[in-house]
Simulated scan of single mutants.
Amino acid sequence: MNQADSLEHDAISQKAKIQSSLKMAVDTLFPRPILGQILNELNTLFPELNIQLHETTLSRCAELLEDGTVDVGIASLIPRGYTGRLATTIELYAVAHLSHPLLQQKDLQLKALEPYKQIVIRDGGFRSNTNSGWLGSTSRITVSSLSEAVSCVKQQLGFAWLPFWVLQLPENKDLAQLPLQNGLIRTVALQTVVRQTETEDHFIKELGRVMDNFIVKLNKYQSRCE
């Protein structure tokens, strides 16, 4: 093999390596059962694919897209100048352990939550710090992920606003929705965003098709949970 052929071979090999790696950032609120199905589908379609998965909160996904760290993001906040497609809407409910005193009351108003400790998920972004949701409690425990928030609630350290799909998991039968007056909830819209420099890549387009199919499954899953 001459030098020109060798360079061409190296270039093709390098391109193959790039295309066999997918970097994703997924918001901590996105239903993990559905994410598992997406990853299984990708494994079936692309057995040699190396996936780097980043769990993010709030503005962190936008930063990873801007920095070129990830190719695809699913998050509530996206970078300026980007467009996204609605993946799903996540309904958040005030949730506590079954033994929490708030569950002994009926038709709670938000004001009744103020004396009780709230578990809050912090913004994972390095360049911004966005507060999201009701933060009316006089004291809080701030954690880095949804799983940590669930753990704190299960340990009876306080209440938290959690996605309804979390309550459907068998391991969380000791958690319950607080009986807020008028069934108050919070709604978060999650969008699927592709890093702009990758939009023409055939591999990324194929991934988009897979994710679009799972959006349909996700909406059906959400309907079953409600």
Rank of each mutant, 00 (worst) to 15 (best):
N2H: 13
A4P: 01
A4M: 06
D5V: 09
S6M: 14
S6F: 14
S6W: 14
L7F: 13
H9S: 13
H9R: 14
D10E: 14
D10G: 00
D10T: 08
D10V: 07
A11D: 09
A11Q: 12
A11K: 14
I12R: 14
I12A: 09
I12Y: 10
S13V: 10
Q14G: 04
K17C: 09
K17D: 04
K17R: 13
I18L: 12
Q19M: 10
Q19E: 14
Q19P: 04
Q19Y: 06
S20I: 00
S20G: 08
S20F: 04
S21W: 01
S21C: 13
S21D: 09
S21M: 12
S21N: 12
S21T: 12
L22K: 02
L22W: 03
L22P: 04
K23S: 12
K23E: 10
K23Q: 11
K23I: 05
M24N: 01
A25C: 11
A25N: 02
V26G: 01
D27E: 11
D27S: 13
T28H: 05
L29E: 06
L29K: 04
F30M: 14
F30P: 04
P31N: 07
P31L: 06
P31T: 05
R32K: 13
R32N: 13
R32G: 06
R32C: 05
P33Y: 03
P33H: 01
P33M: 03
P33L: 03
I34S: 05
I34L: 13
L35G: 04
L35M: 09
L35W: 08
G36V: 08
Q37S: 11
Q37K: 14
I38T: 01
L39P: 00
N40Q: 15
N40Y: 08
E41T: 14
E41S: 09
E41K: 15
E41D: 10
L42Y: 10
L42Q: 07
L42F: 11
N43P: 02
T44W: 08
T44H: 14
T44S: 13
T44M: 09
L45K: 15
F46S: 03
F46W: 10
N50V: 15
I51Q: 08
I51C: 09
I51R: 09
L53Y: 11
L53A: 07
H54N: 15
H54M: 08
H54Y: 15
E55D: 12
T56W: 00
T56Q: 05
T56F: 00
T57G: 04
T57Y: 02
L58Q: 07
L58T: 01
L58M: 11
S59M: 10
S59T: 13
R60C: 03
C61R: 07
C61Y: 01
C61N: 08
A62L: 00
E63Q: 04
E63G: 02
E63W: 01
L65P: 03
E66P: 04
E66M: 07
E66T: 06
D67M: 05
T69Y: 09
T69K: 11
T69P: 06
T69G: 02
V70G: 01
V70P: 02
V70R: 02
D71G: 03
D71Y: 03
I74V: 15
I74T: 08
I74H: 01
I74G: 05
I74N: 02
